[in-house]
Design a protein around this nucleic acid. Structure first.
Lengths: 198, 198
DNA sequence: GTCTATAACTCGATAGAC
DNA sequence: GTCTATCGAGTTATAGAC
């Protein structure tokens, strides 16, 4: 039903790469065609317009990323490894498809994006619910969960969103930086765990 | 010596607004001219090209933001209020001129930007130096300072970088969101303080 | 200095042959 | 389905009058 032909797959991969790198305004249909190894005309044959192609990529991105951001289910009191696993998953998902895209392109049609986001999210505020239960059970501090949600996202996303700046600021080349991010994932989880611990 | 004429100031303010909102590729010289209340030709008369105008804005941005990011001097052991003040300053600077700009535009000429960054920074790793002293004095934990540097930036910048996404995710309209960010600033500082505290 | 008009060019999209 | 060729809109930048 949802089968994709081989050229369609190649085009989508190419589009993802170019849109993520250059943003909507900076992306060129010619570059996507080159990357996919076809002509610009063929590109338009498969996906009528730049706008439609972008919407497709963006929709798939949201579909993939939102479940990762809300991957919390209350299956026990042992919350520390859950925090670690969650943040590892978030780092991985973001590194595979930098959300630079979102930050700049989300504004293109806020109402549409909000609908997209809501539709894709099965369990809104799953973390907040889990945290509240832990808190009432006296297993974690009794604080506002919102800064924790913000912080988990921030700690995972920012290193990728502002990579060039951080490489320069920390005097690392991209290779060293990526290597450091492996250690960082655990260090970031430690920060969240400390913020939650009694 | 560095005096700016009144039209130049108006143009720079307009350019800042448009570049920050639309990015380099999305910005239109016509929009900048409209915003400044002059013709496109006059705009080119003052700043020969889009590229030159952008470089000017970007340079000023780095010049303003880097000192804020490295505003650490070791004037005592009372580090907790210093963390709070630092993060408040960072939040303010970022909110006044969103660094969305950097994340997307920094790649346009990495070598040049690196030089720009180095030149503007008076005290490299001032935080790391301060933290190391506190750590040796037994006043804070003995840990890697790098995740703390990353985290302070991340916690301050991310809420602005990904504003549209967060508004939707937390079901707040922009007004509520901005109001929340006032509380958030202190909550974010708490997270860092907890990560540092023994 | 400021403007209108336009040159020069880029880019998304399409026509039409194969 | 795929391509070459080209159209037409939009954009940066400049020429030249005032």
């Amino acid at each position: 039903m949802d089968e994709l032909t081989e050229p369609e797959q190649r085009i989508l991969a190419a589009a993802r790469k170019v849109f993520e790198r250059d943003g909507y305004a900076g992306a060129r249909m010619q570059h996507i065609a080159d990357e996919a190894g076809i002509s610009k005309a063929s590109l338009h044959y498969y996906f009528r317009s730049k706008e439609k192609l972008f919407q497709r990529i963006f929709d798939e991105y949201i579909t993939r990323i939102v479940p990762v951001f809300s991957a919390w289910n209350d299956d026990g009191d042992d919350w520390q490894p859950k925090v670690r696993t969650f943040m590892k998953g978030m780092m991985k998902a973001i590194s595979e498809s930098p959300m630079l895209l979102i930050a700049r392109e989300f504004d293109r049609d806020p109402s549409k994006m909000e609908a997209l986001l809501t539709a894709r999210r099965k369990k809104p505020n799953a973390f907040a619910a889990y945290f509240e239960r832990l808190s009432k059970a006296g297993l974690v501090r009794d604080i506002d969960p919102r800064p924790l949600i913000m912080a988990m996202q921030a700690l995972c996303a920012y290193p990728y969103m502002n990579k060039a700046f951080l490489c320069a600021a920390m005097r690392m080349d991209p290779k060293q930086y990526n290597a450091y991010l492996d250690q960082y994932t655990d260090q970031a989880a430690d920060i969240i765990i400390r913020a939650m611990k009694k």
